[in-house]
Design a protein around this nucleic acid. Structure first.
Lengths: 240, 240
DNA sequence: GTCTATATCTGGATAGAC
DNA sequence: GTCTATCCAGATATAGAC
């Protein structure tokens, strides 16, 4: 799948994400008109992500946020009850989006090699679309509340588990070689994370998300596929 | 080389690091007795790393630092002139150590494959010995002063350059296959970073630094070595 | 629903005794 | 060289007008 096709398919606009959020949290948000609320939640979150990803969440003052979002200090507190609450809100939304997109794209695929490729691609594409969220989420994880920290770890384990399962299925089917599945999954995650943690680096070198996806898949396959299979795969074109 | 052997060789104690630092910065530090100064610099830095790696440098108050280091607020300011100054001090020390150790261990090696293995190992071992430094340095990079930020990027490029050069030498010698050297180096760095960024994960799974080193080397070699070479290498035992 | 103005608190930094 | 006490800037959060 191309990145453009993916974008068309998931179409994760901030609007959608925050509309969902608003509906699930009507009670906590003082503003009662949905359209007004969603519009401002988008402004607030994108301002918060932009400032935080520049200087870190703890150093972002609410005056900064007020200025960049265009809302007054007082108005901000109609949308969250404390600065920490805002942090947790943003975190929550990201995790919901990941689980949703992953399930949607992987559930139909049975064949391990195709599933592995798709999982790598989907993760990279998703982190590309939601780069500020992913980066924020990684860098600010230690500041979360206890409860949200627990959720964050759960989400981390969830995605790693997906890769472990795919690898083990492939080993059972005798498609992949017999390497340690847990460690291999950890390595894959490290490579996926590098994309959103060092986006500036890849951008400055002109590497697109599709190229990076290609690279990671090749890299992983050279490790997981037996030597002779690999040669044959390459003849067939390894990307479906 | 085993991890123990490495430790014996470099023997990077906090003492040594801060004694070096003290001698290079006598003018900036108000305390004039070397032994007193070094002893307290060690206390301050290890307290600062411990607190920061728990909750982040911006959220560490000087009262926290005072409590954990056992020095009073006033005394702390005999060792640095501002909180930012402390940040830059710690950063500086880490980079000096890296350059020193890398040069010492790699300069003698000409053969690309051995050099690649050694570079991976040394980086992992070093980040293991200085884990709090490495983690801190990565997570707090955005808070550095302009000048120290520039230095940090330089250091980043320095280590990546080492890997690029090794790969290109190996390609010239027809030992490695013809993949993109820059991207491959980026991938290697991502895997090396995962070790100190997610140490808790590997620890909880009982993966030692030697095992991880073995895994990364295998992974990279399966990508860089031609198929037939690989088979032969494995027979010889790929770790020297 | 949003704004301005302000109460309250926290944390970096310093002065001066010991 | 180190400590205690204190200053003061700047931050969160809220009250009340519009």
């Amino acid at each position: 799948m191309t990145f453009d096709a993916f974008q068309g398919l998931v179409n994760i606009s901030s609007e959608d994400i925050w509309r969902d959020f608003y509906r699930n949290n009507r009670d906590k948000i003082k503003v009662k008109k949905e359209d007004v609320a969603v519009k401002n939640l988008v402004k607030i979150s994108s301002a918060a992500l932009s400032i935080s990803n520049r200087k870190g969440f703890p150093l972002m003052t609410l005056r900064d946020l007020s200025e960049e979002s265009g809302l007054s200090m007082g108005a901000l507190y109609s949308y969250f009850s404390s600065k920490d609450d805002l942090l947790n809100m943003i975190q929550q939304q990201r995790m919901a989006a990941i689980v949703k997109v992953f399930s949607a794209h992987l559930s139909g695929i049975g064949e391990p090699l195709e599933k592995l490729r798709t999982a790598i691609q989907i993760h990279l594409y998703l982190s590309e679309v939601m780069q500020p969220w992913f980066y924020f989420s990684y860098m600010e994880a230690k500041n979360l509340s206890k409860e949200d920290r627990r959720k964050a770890i759960e989400a981390e384990v969830f995605t790693e588990r997906i890769f472990i399962d795919i690898i083990e299925q492939g080993q059972k089917d005798r498609i992949f070689v017999d390497v340690d599945s847990m460690t291999t999954a950890a390595i894959i995650k490290a490579l996926l994370q590098d994309w959103y943690l060092k986006r500036w680096k890849y951008e400055s070198r002109g590497v697109s998300v599709e190229e990076y996806s290609r690279i990671v898949i090749d890299f992983v396959e050279s490790y997981l596929l037996p030597q002779d299979n690999l040669k044959q795969e390459e003849k067939n074109g390894s990307n479906g």
